[in-house]
Design a protein around this nucleic acid. Sequence first.
DNA 1: GCCCGTCTTGCGAATATTCACAAGAGTACA
DNA 2: TGTACTCTTGTGAATATTCGCAAGACGGGC
Lengths: 147, 147
Amino acid sequence: MSCEQETALALHAAGRRSTTPRIKVASALQHAGGHLTAEEIHALIQETDHQAAIALSTVYRTLETLKEIRLVAEADGGPRATYEWVDREHPHSHLMCRACGREAMLPPQFVAEFASRIEATAGFEVHLDHFVVPGLCADCRATEGRA
Amino acid sequence: MSCEQETALALHAAGRRSTTPRIKVASALQHAGGHLTAEEIHALIQETDHQAAIALSTVYRTLETLKEIRLVAEADGGPRATYEWVDREHPHSHLMCRACGREAMLPPQFVAEFASRIEATAGFEVHLDHFVVPGLCADCRATEGRA
DNA sequence: GCCCGTCTTGCGAATATTCACAAGAGTACA
DNA sequence: TGTACTCTTGTGAATATTCGCAAGACGGGC
């Protein structure tokens, strides 16, 4: 239950109310792990809680709210947006290949240094919690070179 | 007319056909400058060319194609996606404040160095042509601190 | 210049996401 | 604990974006 208390605290700290739908969406994302679409989150909540269903539009709004207070990150890349819980202890970003679709981990210190350079020069606080860098992986570059 | 020839060449180089809708969409983005939604591009083409209208779904597909061959970059951030022509001579990225919505320029060499570190260590070719970094600008940080 | 195979387009329909507004729930304060 | 104020939710509708398929256009080879 401590996860849920953490979510509630973070909401209060941001001046937002702690409500049942918010706790449920956050909880679903935390426990499922990985990338989920709004639809999947909605279904997951219905399964867990047959009684108190929440509306799909509420899921979307709630995800927007959780994104604003940086508990959740959105990762586009396709017809449907996906969402992931932000692990504050282990922030990470991805490299995503546009050719084969595979994802690789991006060393967090690269992002951290990039962010701190921007903060130092522009005074801008960078929010790259879970950031997807598009490009071509080494394998696909080799293939394209040959083709 | 050289802009249009450039677009045609880039399409051919990527193994895509050079068609009227593609040239028109590219041309609209080049000449309008700045961020346009699909709807705006569509309207712009209708105004310029009363005769040969193109379908909105074609505008979407065409933008997807131009994005793939990196002539165009998409910048989300809102209910509607916006698109911008990529200026190969002057690549640039933005800092966008989540609180006030203002945009600032991000020094291109920061992005370039970030990209080259990734390429050097992972062999991954980074495609950050026109990249929007979310966060909080100096002004809004000050305001939030006070609040 | 013409023909063929393949890539694109236009159309209409399906899907994903956002919006408006009235009803309901959380929080601060007495 | 009760009350009032404001923020959130649910509902249904509006909007943005994607998809499937048949017809049309591009480009290579003759």
